[in-house]
């Protein structure tokens, strides 16, 4: 790598830093959405499928209309539909939300591959990014500091969601349903309706996260686009203790881990980089091993959540 010679070994940490901001965006959106869904006492494992659906529909609409932002919106709508589907099936009596999530994972990826077949060839309009690296003359620094607008929106969204959950009426209702469905029912709120809303909102954000994959980085539509980002993000919510702000930091950490493989590849490492591609998953597992415990319920866990009960 001739152009990397100027900053030598700093290429890798710089690429990881830039990658962290780039790669973390889907993690961030999916985990923020899932955070709200789980605070209402239900887990949606199907966000992997939602992410792929969002990527496909975002890419398709951007290609057809020429406007990437309409694509982002379409991705959100497709994600909401997937979320609403999850919630309405889970609303039936005696249906397990984890199983429905697995089914939606398969359904979402299948449907996206089916509908996305004609989209593999054409190229769609991409999302714009803001150049924060104008002050530097080193191309690597500039490349790392090309920051997408969606990432900034996600960063802004995290504190807003914390505030919304803590202080607004809606936040209180969602938390009540998640902590004690009986209490919510006694207050006259429909548990199913609140969870429908929370899951639909979660699906919307996951869909938007998917559109980032196809419309910015890696920035194309193909069937290998998402490999487990959705499910990693679900695990990340547990690590982040159901707190949107912690979701942000955790997403950055995971983004950095996921950027490690491509960064090493770019400096000419040709062997063993496949193992670094597994870094985010290994990191997730290690973090879950370190933070979970068989003896006590996790701090901050919504009491109605099936996986921590």
């Amino acid at each position: 790598m001739a152009d990397a010679a100027g900053i030598g070994l700093w290429t890798v940490p710089l690429a990881v830093l830039g990658g962290a901001m780039r790669v973390s965006t889907p993690f961030l959106f999916v985990s923020l959405g899932e955070c709200i869904t789980e605070r209402s006492g239900r887990i949606n494992l199907g966000l992997e499928g939602t992410l792929v659906m969002g990527a496909m529909s975002g890419y398709g609409v951007s290609y057809l209309t020429g406007s990437p932002w309409l694509g982002v919106l379409a991705a959100g709508v497709a994600g909401s539909a997937m979320g609403a589907l999850h919630a309405s099936i889970c609303g039936l009596p005696r249906v397990n939300d984890i199983a429905v999530g697995i089914a939606l994972m398969l359904f979402g990826t299948g449907l996206a591959f089916y509908l996305g077949k004609p989209l593999i060839e054409p190229s769609a309009a991409m999302l714009p990014s803001i150049d924060f690296g104008w002050w530097s003359s080193i191309p690597d620094v500039r490349a790392a500091l090309h920051i997408n607008v969606l990432f900034l929106i996600g960063v802004a969204l995290a504190p807003i969601l914390v505030w919304g959950l803590r202080t607004t009426k809606w936040g209180l209702i969602v938390r009540t349903v998640g902590e004690s469905a009986d209490a919510a029912r006694a207050m006259g709120y429909s548990v199913n309706h609140v969870r429908l809303g929370a899951t639909t909102f979660g699906g919307f954000l996951a869909g938007v996260g998917g559109s980032f994959l196809s419309l910015f980085y890696p920035g194309s539509w193909n069937e290998g686009l998402s490999s487990g980002q959705g499910i990693t993000a679900v695990a990340l919510v547990i690590f982040a203790r159901w707190n949107p702000m912690l979701c942000l930091w955790a997403s950055l950490l995971f983004g950095g881990a996921a950027a490690l493989g491509p960064a090493l590849q770019s400096v000419g490492m040709t062997e063993g980089y496949q193992l670094f591609n597994a870094a985010p998953y290994i990191l997730t597992l290690l973090i879950m091993i370190a933070t979970c415990s068989p003896k006590r319920t996790l701090i901050g866990a919504p009491a109605e959540l099936s996986i921590t009960k």
Binding site: L45, I98, T232, V234, A235, I238, M288, S293, I307
Partner: peptide
């Protein structure tokens, strides 16, 4: 031994 959710861990694996 660690209370890690088996659905998520098996999929990560």
């Amino acid at each position: 031994y660690r209370g890690v959710n088996e659905t998520i861990s098996s999929l990560l694996l």
